[in-house]
Amino acid sequence: MALQFTLNGKTVEFSGEARTTLADCLRHHLGQTGTHVGCEHGVCGACTVIVDGEAVRSCLMLAVQAEGSHVTTVEGLSEGEDLSPLQAAFRKHHALQCGFCTPGILTTAHALLTHEPDADEERIRHVLSGNICRCTGYLPIIEAILDARAAYADGRRGKPA
């Protein structure tokens, strides 16, 4: 099985077995290990990436299903070494500890605020119910996402999805 898709703005090629999930394709075939694999069956949210503008679980999608799509991973959220406004807000609010869940939460929040820059706390809490974090207790994460909203509302959201 050979196919192409766009990963963080660049065309990439995948050649491998049809059973390869998008998560494993990103990590093992394309060397993009920022996307983490936790439960491998769609419960934990760690592997969340953005496909054609929408946050999806990359363990619940075959790589071949992404053929021709635009995929954004955590590596694509910022320009170079600079943190995006969302990432900077996570740092400021101590919104991560071990960091395992963080890529999935950043991609989820980036997709959410791109579509809904005025998402209120209830909406953010509701959306985050799809991502499991065992360190922070979630409150700093919610504060960071609330803080990052201004950057999305005025277009400083970092690299577009």
Partner: peptide, 9 residues
């Protein structure tokens, strides 16, 4: 039905 990311697919 389900969570945000699952609802997208």
């Amino acid at each position: 039905v389900a969570h945000y990311q699952v609802r997208n697919r």
